[in-house]
Nucleic acid binder design. Structure first.
Length: 427
RNA sequence: CGGGAUAUGGUGUAAUGGUAGCAUACACCCUUCGGGUGGGUGCAGUCCCAGUUCGAAUCUGGGUAUCCCGACCA
């Protein structure tokens, strides 16, 4: 991708009033455009990141036998009346449209999917089944905040599992738990499995995946060795207490909830009427589980964790590009400029041939300082510089965004270097 | 939903009752060239409605929007 053609440019100043790091950096660098409080447009750079995160999530969902569907955003009132949630609970934050009839904008999809499942699952032999989707959700949040961390419109992956027995559900629950750790690790985040309050019908155990960050809305009490963590709202322990597992002193910190998993029991199957006939001939409500990942929130969380004073530092797995190629047009001699452009294009082609996603800063009349500043702000993991100085040595300069020092690689040896080093980032 | 703050060119800011200024971005000219080079020219603005006043960006009332704290966060 040629940066001269890239839609959107970086901004020198932080958006007015904005305090949260992810909101500032994502807007300044041109990843997101704020439409309203808690409502964002994903620009070319931002969408690439979102897609990368989606890809990771999809792969891990397929690994736990999830089948992807895409449900509608518009939801019938009748279904919500069946579960009593049109007016209460999440219904309170549902956007409702009045047309011919009242319709809800999906804040979550338990009702809808349970109703669909009701139409296809009739026997124990049809179970278990695991259905997920990646979709935009709408919630009338009383207070949208912190950029992508809490939006009124946001992207979420929601997986629902359907089982014939509690024990089968529990096995799957554990499996998804593992898959979730993998998702967050692949996104460059260290998630802490945290016990949280269940809603009435969940009788106890629900789990949140929390990422430590000052931008978080939750406070967790956790074991630094990772044995234990509880959300402050339900915590029976406090900072300074001993970890019930290893005895280590517990810590307390702010955290962003990037995912959650919880049992639904038979709440929805019962009220919506999703039953199956068991091998004993009896009709039973399907046992359900629900597993969410805030995809767009994850993007915000990654920025909160991976940045410095100059900009974002994307983990390779979710970066919009693998390499940011800069050509420094320094000489005022036309012949030299042409020579440099030719060399930069050659490097660009080498990179593309190696299947490296590259953003090529081919902009003319931009000073080196400006190109460096933009590269730091955008935060692509590798920066490759082509300049007169480099050309004299038949080399390019390669610098990692998260490292201070640069190294020099002969253009001839570039393909080998790329094969050897960049693959590391493809998780 | 309670509390606080803010609203001025595309973006970021100054002007506290009397000529709306600066920076940046953008366009053009010159200059410079490995960390936002310097200079010149041009383009462009007071959130909305009402009120006070000879006169309002500025004061008053109402509205709207944004940010922050809290409540809320199946």
């Amino acid at each position: 991708m040629l940066q001269s053609r890239l839609f959107t440019k970086t901004k020198r100043e932080s958006p007015k009033g904005e305090k949260s790091v992810n909101a500032i950096l994502l807007q300044r660098a041109g990843f997101c455009y704020k439409e309203m409080a808690g409502v964002y447009t994903y620009l070319p750079l931002g969408l690439r990141v979102l897609r990368k995160i989606e890809r990771i999530v999809r792969e891990e969902m397929e690994n736990v036998s999830g089948q992807e569907i895409l449900m509608s955003v518009l939801q019938p009132k009748s279904l919500w009346l069946k579960t009593g949630r049109w007016k209460e609970g999440i219904g309170e934050v549902m956007y409702k449209c009045k047309g011919k009839e009242e319709i809800g904008l999906g804040p979550t999809h338990e009702e809808m999917l349970t109703d669909i499942v009701r139409n296809y699952i009739h026997s124990f032999e049809d179970l278990p089944v695991y259905i997920y989707q990646i979709q935009t959700k709408f919630r009338k949040e009383p207070r949208a905040r912190s950029g992508l961390i809490r939006g009124r419109e946001f992207e979420m992956k929601d997986l629902y599992s359907f089982h014939q027995s509690e024990s089968d559900f529990k096995k799957y629950y554990k499996k998804v738990q593992k898959a979730y750790f993998k998702i967050f690790r692949r996104c460059g985040l260290k998630a802490i499995l945290t016990e949280a309050s269940g809603v009435g019908f969940t009788k106890g155990y629900t789990h949140e995946f929390q990422v430590l960050s000052a931008a978080g809305e939750d406070t967790i009490v956790y074991c630094p060795k990772g044995h234990f963590s509880q959300n402050k709202e339900v915590a029976k322990f406090q900072a300074g207490d001993n970890c019930p597992v290893c005895g280590e002193k517990l810590l307390q910190g702010k955290a962003i909830e990037v995912g959650n998993i919880f049992p639904l029991g038979v709440k929805y199957s019962q009220s919506i009427g999703a039953f199956f006939q068991d091998r004993d001939g009896k009709k039973k409500p399907i046992i359900m589980g629900c597993y969410g990942v805030g995809i767009s929130r994850l993007m915000g969380a990654i920025v909160e964790v991976h940045h410095d004073g100059k900009g974002i530092i994307w983990p390779g797995s979710v970066s919009p590009f693998d390499v940011h190629l800069l050509s420094l047009q320094l000489s005022n001699k036309m012949s030299q400029r042409e020579k440099l452009e030719k060399a930069a294009k050659k490097v660009y082609r080498i990179l593309q041939k190696q299947n490296v996603d590259v953003l090529y800063d081919d902009r003319k009349n931009k000073s080196p300082g400006e190109k460096f500043a933009d590269a730091d702000l955008i935060g692509i993991p590798y920066r490759i510089v082509v300049s007169d100085r480099m050309l004299r040595k038949q080399s390019v300069e390669i610098k990692r965004r998260d490292k201070k020092i640069a190294r020099f690689v002969k253009i001839k040896q570039l393909p080998a270097f790329l094969r050897k080093n960049l693959r590391l980032n493809k998780t």
